Simulated assay, not measured.
Amino acid sequence: MSLISRRLTGLAALATAVALTLSACGSDDNGSDSSGSPSNGTDAADADAQTTDNLRNLYRDVLAQVSTDDFADATGPTIDFTGDFQYATADLNADAVPELLVKATGQEFSPIRVYSASDDGTQLIAPTKIFYEGASSAGGSRAAVYTTSDGSGLLQADWMGGTGAANSTLWSFDGSEMTESGRTWSYRIDQVPSDLASLQTDITWISTDDSSALDTLSIGGTAQDAASDSGPQPTTGGDAGSGTSDSGSAGSAGTLPQSMTASSSQIGGTCGTVDGVTVTAGDSTSCGFAMNVAQQLLSTGWGPGRAYVPSDPTSPTSGGSTTVTATSPSTGTTYTMDCNMNQDGRGGHCEGGNGASVGLVGSLTRYLQAR
């Protein structure tokens, strides 16, 4: 048995032990009446919360035990590992349960693996497919990995630095393995097809030393509800008790398509996408507010500015800064946020209130207004 097989077997055994312990602890539960039916409506919520905790713990175990041996691939490129690891979470099959992506950083190419879990969050699922991102010598091969804006899987992009000839393949997660979906694109790297551009979403990688994304990880809408007073304080629109009218739902500030992968009350972490752009919330910012900021910002646009030129990565944008106001579902009040676009046009950042911050990852050049 290979070392990676022994490691996965050990993780599976650990998860099984957790499942048996949970089962034993629940055997004396008094949450049902004499007929065996639930005594109140909290049982399902409690089960969801327990599943969320199980998933977090299972993913923490993966990161605690991760090794370069887990990325052995006889058919892949030779990797000069740095010894560092990064991770991200993303829903790869639109079931509201986030998968764990782990990257072992290399000097040129870095391998990426996907991990998932059983429905109750106790059994580890480790697809064997390994993805790659990075670049070889000048004019050589290049690779990038993206999540998708619709939760349909992972995109593996490969191209040549000299010719720019590129291919992208969508890989789907079927619950146990990553499999080719049959959707592929062939193009020049500076002429990405519009349907692919709207689908691919950059991954925000986090050091394994930072557990914030796992601490706030949620299944469906079951994330722990952070206190609303831990969020930003209003800078405009009245005080927190003013009762400013707001529907309380993310996206009320605009009509662009969005996919929210976290609860509105989640504090910090990845929140979802707006028009294919990934939205993240800072440590003291709720996802509901972050999504509203993104909706408002992308609906009104940046500008005026000069569009980023894909064929010239050194070409800066001049989108500059802009200011938007958005309403927090937690407080019902309106806040002012100052936003700046990255020089390469591939993201941006907004700050405001009392320490509120919102990150945007993805191409923003299409939102630039003409001069």
Rank of each mutant, 00 (worst) to 15 (best):
R188C: 00
I189L: 04
D190C: 01
Q191S: 09
V192H: 12
V192L: 15
V192P: 10
P193N: 07
P193T: 08
S194T: 14
S194W: 03
D195P: 05
D195K: 04
L196W: 11
A197F: 01
A197Y: 04
A197D: 13
S198P: 01
S198L: 04
S198Q: 10
L199S: 15
L199D: 14
L199Q: 15
Q200S: 07
Q200W: 06
Q200R: 15
T201G: 11
T201P: 02
I203P: 04
I203M: 01
T204L: 07
T204S: 13
T204D: 13
T204W: 00
T204P: 01
W205F: 07
W205A: 09
I206G: 00
I206H: 13
I206T: 15
S207V: 09
T208C: 09
T208N: 10
D210G: 09
S211V: 06
S211Y: 01
S211F: 02
S212V: 10
S212I: 10
S212C: 05
S212R: 15
S212P: 05
S212G: 07
A213T: 12
A213Q: 15
L214T: 02
D215G: 05
D215K: 12
T216P: 05
T216W: 02
T216M: 03
L217I: 12
L217G: 03
L217W: 03
S218Y: 00
S218N: 07
I219F: 06
I219P: 00
I219H: 07
I219Y: 07
I219M: 08
G220D: 01
G220S: 02
T222Y: 10
A223G: 15
A223Y: 06
A223S: 15
A223D: 09
Q224F: 10
Q224V: 11
Q224S: 14
D225W: 05
A226H: 07
A226V: 11
A226I: 05
A227S: 12
A227E: 08
S228G: 11
S228R: 14
S228I: 13
D229W: 05
D229G: 00
S230P: 04
S230T: 14
G231M: 08
G231R: 12
P232N: 06
P232E: 09
P232D: 07
P232Y: 04
P234Q: 01
T235E: 10
T236G: 00
T236F: 08
G237D: 01
G237T: 03
G238R: 09
G238Y: 10
G238H: 07
D239I: 12
D239H: 07
D239V: 07
A240T: 15
S242F: 15
S242M: 10
G243D: 06
G243M: 06
S245M: 04
S245H: 08
S245D: 09
D246F: 13
D246A: 13
D246L: 06
D246E: 07
D246K: 11
D246W: 15
S247A: 10
G248S: 10
S249D: 11
S249V: 12
S249H: 09
A250F: 11
A250V: 06
G251K: 11
G251C: 09
G251V: 05
S252A: 13
S252T: 14
A253Y: 08
A253H: 08
A253G: 14
G254W: 00
G254Q: 06
G254L: 02
T255M: 01
L256Q: 12
L256F: 11
L256P: 14
L256A: 13
P257L: 01
P257Q: 03
P257S: 03
P257K: 03
S259R: 15
S259E: 03
